[in-house]
Structures are given as C-alpha cells and as structure tokens.
Design a protein around this nucleic acid. Structure first.
Lengths: 402, 402
DNA sequence: GTATTTTAGATACAAGCTAAATATATTGTC
DNA sequence: GACAATATATTTAGCTTGTATCTAAAATAC
C-alpha cells in the first residue's frame, strides 16, 4: 500500500527558528564580529530573538561569543558610549569541507574551513589509464586524506565534499557519460566515501564548479549571470543564470563537444593543431617542429608575442572563432560576463583584445570577457564553494563533531 | 541618512500561516473537492490546522465550503461510513487574470478564471505602424476591455495581467529593445494599466510566455527542462530550466537574431526565401510565382506534400538547418523536450521526421521534438499561466474584490 | 560624580502549530 | 430500530517562536 507522501512538510514553529537562524548565521558569516544591534538591523528580528538565536547557534557549535568586552578602534560602526555589546563571531573551524577536482590524469583535493580559507591541499595521479574502479576511488581518497593531514583536520570533521569531474552530471549528481571512466565516480564515489568516512559527496560537472568558483573568488565576483569557458583537455561551459547553475535534463548543459564551431578552439591540443594547419606550409615558427599539446600551444603564443606574423595570424583566427562561440552562448544564455578559465587561461590574455573586438559583429548583447585569475585551482575552489553552499543551506540539520 | 534595508523580513509566526495556507490552497486548486482528511495527507498539517486555514481562506474569499453533505458516487477515495467530511472547493471566479499577446500587428487579450479556464477573448489591430505611444496602449486596452466584457467580468476583478511582446524583457519586466516600438510597452503599459484600472502588469518576452503555456497546456506538459522555438515573424526561443524561465542579464536569452545558422529558418518569410534560393533555377514549383511571406511558405509545404521533389529537397535542407539550431540549443541548455510553436508550427509537422532523423548527427543528447498544439493562442495561454503563477504565489497579499 | 547613551535581560502576551480527548454524523449489522 | 463501527469534527491544553515593553547594567562625556 503506497503511502501518500507529503510533498512539503507542514510549516511548524520550528521552521521559523530555522529560517531566522540561517539569516543570523549568514550575517555573522558575512561580517567579522556581529552584535545584537547589527543583527537586528540586518535580519529584522528583535534583540531578544536575535540573541536567543545566537545562543542556539552557540549551543550547536556554529558560532562563539567573544569574552573581551570590546576591541578599541573597532571601526566606524562602533559606538563610543553605552553598555558594551555582546559580540559573536563565526566558529570558522567548527567543521571543514573538501573540494575535489578529479581530472583525467590527476586528482586535487583541498580542505577549507567554514570561511572558505584553504587550509590543506594535495594531489595524486592516476598511474595507468586502466585501473580498476576501486583503485580510482582509492587514489581520490588518498588525495583527500593527505589534504586533511596537511590541514590537521580529522576526517570526521568534514561536513561535505564537493567533487568535479569532466563529464555531464545531472541535478541529482548522476553521471551521464557512458564512454569514459567517469561513470564510475557516480554511485561509486558517493557510497564509498559515505561508507569510508561518512562524507556527503556532491558530484558536479567541473565547468559548473568552475563558474561557482569564479563568482566567489575570481573575476566574476558577485555576477549572477555568468559563464565560465573551461578550456583545457576539453572545452566545457559552466553556466550561472540568476545565480543558479544550469544543468538541463541530463546535466549536459554547456557540453559543446558536438559544436563544429568549437573544433580546435579552447583546448591546448586543438590550438596547436590549428597552428599547424593554419601556418604557412614550411612552418614559419622559430620554435622548431610544431609540437602537439600544451607545449605546441604555448609555442604559438610565445611566437606571437615575439612578433611572428604567422603566429599572430593564427591567434587572430582563433580569437574570431572563440568570439563566435561566445556569441552563440550569448544568444541562448545572455550572460553579463564570460570568463575563460582552465589550462588555456594562462595564455588567453593574448586573445582577449581580438575576442572583444570581434564580438559585436556576432551578437547584439556581448558579455564582458575576462580571463580567470584562479589558474589550476579554479575547479577545486568551485568545489569548495559548492560544498559550503550545501553546508550553509543545511547548517541546522548537520551535526558538528567536537 | 540611508536606512539599513532589511534584506529579508524576519520570519514571524504569520509566515507559517502564509506557507501553510498556500500549500492548502495549492491542493484545493489541484483537486475538485477537498476535505480535511485529504489536506492532512497532502500538507502534513493536523486536522485542526488544516480546517483553521480553510476557514481563513474562506474569509478571504479564495475558497468556499460546499453545504451539500456528500455527493454519492464521489469516487474511490470517498469512504462509505463515518461522519461526512466538510468539503471545500476553489472559488474559481473569485478573481480573474488577463493574458495579453502584443504582436507587431495585432493584440490578443484573453480573460481566464482562477482555474485557468478562458472565459473571454478579443483581438485588436494596430492600424498604422507609426501611431503615438498612447494610441498603442489604447489599442491594447481596448482588446482587454472587450475580452472582459465578453467574460462578463468587471475590470476591478483582474488580479494580474501577463503580457508578452516580441522583444527581450529582463527579470524586472524592463524592455531591452531600442530599435522597435516595443520599448514603449515597458514603463508605459505598466503605469498606464495601473492608473487606468489598478492592474498589475507582468511583462515578458513572448517566447518565454510560450514555453510556460506549452508546459501548462501544450505538448510539454509537466516537463521542467523545456524549450519552445517560437517561429513566425521572427525566431525566438523560450527556455525553461528546472521549471524556471531563463532571462540572462538583459532578458536576451533565446534571442537568436544574430545566429547565422538561423538565417531563414523559422520564419515564414525566411522559408519562402530559402525555397526561392534553393529551388532549381527556373522554379519547378507548380504553384506559380514564388510568393513571399506565409503564402510562399505554405506553397512550399503544399508542393512537398504533393510530391514535388524540388519542394521536398527544400524541406529537407530546412529540416537539417533546424536540426542544427536545435542541436546548438541542446549543447547549451540540454532540454528534455523542444516544441516548435508559432505561425510556422502548423506546417512544421512536415519537418519533424527530417529534424528527428538529423538530430543525432549534431548532438549526443537530442531532445524530444514536438509541434505545439496551441496554435495562435500559445502566447496568450502562456501569459495567463504567468499571471496565474503570480496570483498563486501572492494570493495572501492580494485583496479580492467582492 | 552624574547625565547620557547603548545594550542586556526580564516579563507579558500573541500567533500558530501539535496532540489528545471528546463529540457528532453516517453506515452497516443484528 | 438499537447498537457497534467508522470517519470526521471540535475542543482544550500546551509548546515553540515570535513581538513589545519595561527595567537594569555598563560604558563614555562632561
């Protein structure tokens, strides 16, 4: 007999405390030191409620009260007279999150505290391409444990782990790819980490995490309609619309593999190939034989910077192609800003003027185009942000270990 | 002295009633007749609370109680024994909404009750292209008042009006287009209708409304990742991701004007032009001179249906182009389903097999492709849905006039 | 040392929900 | 036709979380 499920549990008085506590916690997180008066202003609660909520949060371990009566020179907002306010601050080491970037060759894990400060980081490589699933998860696990050791945090203190892979992941964390070894990180990683350490794993597409990271700590700070082109081994887009990640039906939003526009553009190998293809026959680059991979791509950028006209021409054409890709994105998504990130980002600055110049020819609403300052860490930083989002939304349901 | 604004008002006990009342109202809306026991099951409330909420909703005018003790043969869920349940139903004529489709040439207004049943409809044409703003709003106003008269509803009973225009509209209802006469419907329509009748106008892009309508009453019923290609005078896409409309920064998401892929495909004029361009030199179509506009397009479809090979070839090429557009959308949005709507929809059924066959060549994640059954009403139905969404979300803040 | 100012803490009370006990109306059975 | 069974309604008490208001405390300024 199938029970009628309750779609939304009834709103009980406890919901009020939950809502208000999250608002209070959010404000305390956003500021250095919070006082009752400050909380009243930002949350609309009365002092009595605000302080009751704080005491609740102290009991749960999320914040703590400072005992020193008041620091001098605290700033403009600090009144000179009156009874000193009770002061609360985030207990930023009440728990930690993991941000994991699972690449095809290497896995990087970073540990961050509740303020998002990275306190440990470690990488591990997959030795062979064809290792059994358990081994793969073992490699990821090792990177995580090393990062935890570096952070001096026990595994039990991890509140959530964000993990990015280079494959479509739907809203429920299910991996769509059937081709690669990625499919093994789906149920496998989640259940393995839950069993091994009790961790909650939030699996996401790497480009999606990149856009979260870029908005948080990159050049897209605070932009709610933001796209990151993650260009490296492959080209993927992470899309934020109105501050929300786009997934689409099967998590394949931003998967541009089939776009012939994209061909070659946006991956190191591809750029090297285009350079070979587009260069004058004999190959005019002084760098010698046109190497493939990132070395080849780097060579092209170096030659162009040195003034080599052939290399310049290659970059111009790449810029134009890139502009077309960006314009196409703008047609469907209309972002305010687009960030180029990933392995190509380092050299992408050279492409920026060309892209910006070409864009208005292809779209009426060109986004601002920038290059990510986050480098290799873009996905792991985004994974941290993703995990923190989860922790912040579920703070009152999570138990902090002492 | 700038007051510190309260971002989110504190959650007070009244919020509980609000949340629970909306849940109850939602269930009553979804069913024919609701009882206390049914509400308990769906909302998780206790009987006492459920009935208290109902009495509140009755007082406010949204629902009413049926006096007849119980209808016989009510259905399987109706128990045979026991004290008869109090029975509540939606007061579906407690208020009305307007759905307005403002086209370049014609404005159509539809009046619907709270269940979404259309109870009045009317159209008005813009006589000249260059009429002053006030006139334009007057034409729209006339269509609305005629529809209201047909519905037998007083203007004061309109709770919200959804209005669609063929231009980008951002999340705040601001029109982006500078070129057309659309920009005049921005602040103008809103303030005019507020002053004239006290109506709240929700302005939206027409394709966005179309996708809302299509999910509600079209072939995309219940699909949360849905795209509508609105093809007629122009080609625009309305995108629903996770049940939410995509706008992008300036409301220009789905504006494909600049995409050269799109050229010709998806508008009647364009199809006629392609037919002329692609037909064998002398023009093999028996329909005589290749007319432009929808007549020309219709001719191509008719010829193809009659077996004319040249016309067939034209349709094949159009199908392939259409498939490429759809595949590009899939790369960025990855919808579960894509619906072709608008003036072209009537003949688009002939293109469907070709599109469906071509799609897998261009994308790994092809959406289901269908043709809208809503015809010309697609935008106005979507506008009704949009207005109803607003009314349903703000029911407790809206005052019902008796 | 006293007034002023700012915050804390305490008390009273209101809204909304749950839970449990009691009351009521209908059907089915003997 | 009385009575049990059943499903629902209604009432009462109590809990949680708020607000509002009053009083107390602790600092600065003069």
């Amino acid at each position: 007999m199938p029970e009628d499920p309750v779609p939304q549990p009834a709103a009980t008085p406890q919901l009020l405390r939950r809502v208000n506590a999250l608002a209070v916690l959010g404000h305390i997180r956003s500021t250095d030191v919070a006082t009752g008066t400050g909380l009243m202003a930002r949350t609309g609660l009365t002092r009595a409620s605000a302080i009751a909520v704080c005491e609740d949060l102290i009991r749960r371990g999320w914040i703590r009260e400072l005992d020193s009566p008041r620091r001098e020179g605290e700033g403009a907002g600090n009144p000179r007279k009156g009874r000193p306010a009770r002061r609360f601050e985030l207990n930023s080491r009440a728990g930690f999150v993991l941000g994991i970037d699972i690449g095809a060759a290497t896995t990087t894990a970073a540990v961050a505290d509740l303020r998002g400060t990275v306190v440990g980081r470690s990488s591990e490589s997959f030795r062979a391409a064809d290792i059994p699933p358990a081994e793969r998860i073992g490699v990821v696990d090792r990177a995580c444990l090393q990062a935890l050791a570096a952070a001096g945090a026990a595994p039990g203190r991890i509140l959530a782990a964000g993990a990015g892979i280079a494959a479509p992941v739907d809203r429920n964390g299910k991996v769509l790819a059937s081709r690669h070894f990625w499919s093994l990180f789906d149920v496998g990683l989640r259940s393995a980490f839950r069993e091994l350490h009790g961790w909650t794993v939030l699996l996401e597409n790497d480009a999606n995490l990149a856009v979260l990271g870029e908005r948080w700590r990159g050049s897209g700070a605070g932009v709610d309609d933001l796209v990151v082109l993650l260009a490296g081994e492959r080209l993927g887009a992470g899309v934020l619309e109105s501050g929300r990640l786009l997934h689409g039906r099967g998590g394949a939003a931003g998967e541009m593999g089939y776009l012939d526009l994209v061909e070659g553009v946006g991956s190191s190998d591809g750029i090297a190939a285009l350079a070979r293809q587009w260069s004058p026959a004999g190959n005019g680059t002084p760098g010698g034989s046109p190497a493939g991979g990132s070395a080849g791509a780097r060579q092209v950028f170096a030659d162009a910077a040195a003034g080599d006209p052939a290399a310049r021409a290659v970059l111009d054409r790449i810029s134009e192609r890139m502009a077309r890709v960006i314009a196409t994105i703008s047609s469907f998504i209309n972002p305010e800003q687009l960030v180029i990130g990933g392995a190509v980002a380092a050299s992408a600055a050279a492409l920026l003027p060309g892209i910006t110049a070409a864009l208005p020819r292809f779209t009426a609403t060109p986004p601002r185009v920038t290059v990510s300052p986050l480098g290799d860490a873009i996905v792991s930083i985004g994974a941290i942000r993703h995990a923190l989002d989860y922790v912040e939304a579920n703070a009152l349901e999570l138990e902090l270990s002492p």
